[in-house]
Nucleic acid binder design. Sequence first.
DNA 1: ATAGCAGTAGGCCCT
DNA 2: CTACTGCTAT
Length: 756
Amino acid sequence: MIEQSAASYLDELNDVQRQAVTHETGPLQIIAGPGSGKTRVLTYRISHLINSGVKPWRILALTFTNKAAREMRERIDTVVPGGANGMWAGTFHSLFARLLRVHADRLGYPNNFSIYDTQDSRSVVKQILREEQLDPKVYNVAAVAGRISTAKTRMLSPEAYQLNTELKEYDKQSRRPLIGMIYEKYVNRCKRAGAMDFDDLLLKMYELLVKHEEAAEQIRSKFDHILVDEFQDTNHLQYEIVKRLIKYPESKENICIVGDDAQSIYAFRGATIKNILDFQRDFPDTTVFKLEQNYRSTHHIVAAANTIIKNNRRQIEKKIFTDKNIDDAEKINIVKTMTDQEEAKRVAGLIAEQKHRYHLANTDIAILYRTNSQSRLFEEHLRKNNIPYRVYGGMSFYQRKEVKDVIAYLRVIVNPTDEEALRRVINYPKRGIGQTTIDKVSMIADRMNRPMWDAMMTADLGRATAKIRDFVKLIKGLQSVLTTSNAHELAERVVQASTMLSTLKSDTTIEGMGRLENVVALLDGIKDFVEQDDVAYVEGDDPSDRSLAAYLQSIALLTDADEEKKDTPTVTLMSVHAAKGLEFKSVFVTGLEENLFPSGMALQERNGLDEERRLFYVAITRAERFLTLTYSKSRYKFGNMQMSSPSRFVSEISDENIAASANSSSRVKSGISGMPKRKVLRGGGAFKAAFTPPKDFKASPVSAIQVGCKIIHPKFGEGKVQSLDGSPENRIATIHFQDLGQKKIMLRFSKMMVVE
DNA sequence: ATAGCAGTAGGCCCT
DNA sequence: CTACTGCTAT
């Protein structure tokens, strides 16, 4: 029986793929180039394991997005009908959250702990900064939260952070010496709120495995096989956890990691290729397979990808090849425009043309960009051309205010100590509880060393006491039906009882109606969740956890890539990061300009350019047949028109793979030498403070500002650059202004135009 | 003490 | 462009 079903799928594989799929026990590493059938190998391998008698619930498959896990499940089901039932497949965060629900009490958290998203985390930091009266300009919220996140990923406790000289020194240099103290307060706040942030889901899992042997043993013994997808994008902490799950006495070390160092694009948030190298050290018996045959793209695209990635230093050696040597395969098209507007217009036009000429469906086409803010112009022009599209990323459904509000109510009902959720709804809809009262509650809570909720139930708050008690009563009333009603019924009660529904209904503006629609859509979504019963059965777990807590957990950990498709087939607009793992017949990679792609920030970081190049590699290898690269000579940035030069990546592609229409004249070599010369412009220098910039004022890129340049500053007027100081990203120019004398200016924040 | 408004400063990278 | 801050009316 095994042989028969085996034959049907093993025949679909090439030699290397088959060896990887049928490899029996012991550590396994699969290096998988783009389009090399990685997902197929992974799903067939799991199917094969199940066919050979491994119980699905003893398999742990860690993916990067929930969508990837879902698709894996579906594909396994087509090979082994019903086979994926009970398999542990999901993201690191979602599976660990599930395991932590069982063991949270050992770590001092309630089992119904909340999950703080990035916004919540920042809001906690902001509270602390306000209380400590730290200058928000110096202590930038995002930067502080970023430092805390880095510390957690490096497994440093607040105490360890305080003792780490390197971190201390860095903080001192960036004039934020108190980050260690803020970190400590942050951790206490989260703990008091019974909340874990995204990093905690990993960190606490690690803590559980290291410090709580009984729980660790229980978790380890659940799994016979562990598979990790996109291993190149895991961070150190994730790898440490995986190691502790699989390395123990008598372990068969059935671990399979799949990845491609050339597609590592998350170093900026701690992913490290070092994990791959460490893996070979930690598991010396590892069998390695390299999937090098590309089944996705034409030879032009594969050739371009190979040429580009060769420019990177140190990488695992491999040569991607294809036998799709179609003679008339379309070469790569390069489109150059004068403005970003025109770029969007051309792309929309080309899409219309391709659809017509090659009978492409909307879903065959994707527009990729480096930053989400670039989507706006494409949307505009696609609309003009009546091409349906869908933008992924950016503000997702669950990040909208009204949706977050409903969810915040639900969070408070499940876990009233969740302070971020509480703060969100304590005065929404308006019930006369202002900042002063909230601050007072917070202070009392601090003194009691208890959650705000406790203070709200008991403390005397003067005039506001009655209002607060009413709110407490509202929440308690909803809590009392928590066990008797399902998540959907409860959510309906919430919007009624909180008067959110009537408040929204009374708003008859277009936006107001949209908000109401969103809330209704959310309720529908909760209903779907409650009614859906095809969720994996997991041995030892509640087979059908449709509870409100389970719902909240599932939505807290959604990623951009998980957004559901609408019914209408659409053209896809997304960032290159979000496009990882996807493929399209026709791909437009846009905004290929220096300081955009590669991004200016990345260029200043060590190894930043290499990561940008890998990102470009990922972008172009998404294409099956048609690849169009676009760039513009100018672009609006920060509300200013900026000149831009073509990305160096474009010139790294060999001419033989580029379509003839994109002749040499459009292939401008990158560099800023092409800066147009400008006449000296005299602004209204007569009044010192009231300088008005000339009409054709255009900010020049920072790189264009050199010692000796004459510049015009929009406020200070004309001046001459005396000297440049500081790091490249924090370049400080000393400028002698005609009217104001010497001034030091941070180039990052000011917009100046070079005149000579 | 709270709510709504208007002006302003900071900031647009990817999770 | 937008998310905060401070002001003013209630």
